[in-house]
Computed example of a mutant assay.
Amino acid sequence: MPTTLADVQDVVEALWPRSGAESWDAVGLVAGDPAAPITRIRLAVDAVLDTVDEAVSSGAQLLLTHHPLLLRGVTSVAEDRYKGAVVARLIRGGCALIAAHTNADVVERGTSAVLAARLGLRDARPLVPGSEPSVGLGRVGRLEHPMALGRFARAVADVLPPTAQGIRVAGEYERELRTVALCAGAGDAFLQHPAVLAADVYVTSDLRHHPASEAAEAARLGRGPALIDVSHWASEWLWLDVAAEQLRAALPDIEIAVSELRTDPWEFAIV
């Protein structure tokens, strides 16, 4: 019997249960016939025109993304609008769409856990614990050896794919780091979390001016971590390889590939 989209949905649910998603999130099947056969799957962070075209041209019958396409309500899927054009190209190309978002953040090998592992953090644990010790949002761990903030920022840059934004740092270059808190994706909601305040540095994305400024000033008084702000897309792209590995183990007859396309929205920077 051929593997169907419904079969893949079952695997996705086992790997990244919907119960782990935040209440505001929109995860799971976005488009596609559950009875349709699946032989190829493409993974990407975002369902944008380029990743959809790539998936369709590669012959994939499923695009699995981290970010939901329809996170907020829409009143039209007309093709002169971005989301409508994406949906239309998916349907015409016979390609389904599934999103695994916050439900893929909290699992043991989720987005933040993968970033923590790539940075070599020891004894990493969830920043915001979930129902089990290894499950939850973000991660906190320690470096194998103390390291200057500047050197650590370079290590972060070496791990992540390059983007126009690069790596932005608030803190003294020579500040010694031992403990690291991080949250792949947007994490300024945790700037005042006790585990973040107790860390030497906090790595996350999408830090806004005022919260970042307040946190940086508090750090100068010895009351908080240095900050490293990275590309949202880059911080979560690392997870795709792990997700693909897990899918291959569960679906050995399916061809699974990770998109190399950069879907960070910024094309270039002028400094």
Rank of each mutant, 00 (worst) to 15 (best):
W239R: 06
V156E: 00
S259Q: 06
V11D: 00
G185E: 03
A153F: 12
P34V: 00
W16G: 08
D253E: 15
H101D: 12
S23E: 10
P161W: 07
L43T: 02
G130K: 11
A186Y: 05
A212N: 07
A250Q: 13
G141P: 00
A153N: 11
L70P: 07
I167Q: 00
M1R: 15
A199C: 03
H209D: 14
R175S: 05
L261R: 13
R40P: 11
H101V: 09
P162Q: 06
S259T: 08
G20M: 11
D105N: 07
M147G: 01
A195H: 00
L207N: 02
R168Q: 14
E54C: 13
A117T: 13
D158K: 05
A88D: 01
G59V: 10
Y173M: 04
L121P: 13
A195L: 04
A155L: 14
E255R: 14
D7C: 10
Q9F: 02
V135E: 06
A164P: 04
A100G: 15
V12F: 10
V114L: 07
L62A: 11
A249K: 14
R178S: 15
G185L: 05
V203C: 01
G166D: 12
E22F: 08
A47Y: 08
K83L: 07
H101E: 11
D264F: 05
A31G: 01
P162L: 05
A99D: 04
Q9N: 02
V271T: 13
T51I: 11
V56M: 03
S58W: 15
L197I: 08
W233K: 07
P129A: 04
L177P: 10
A104R: 04
N103R: 00
L182F: 14
S259G: 11
P37R: 03
G20F: 07
A113P: 13
V86W: 02
A26E: 05
P162I: 08
R89P: 00
C95F: 04
L90S: 08
G73V: 06
H209C: 12
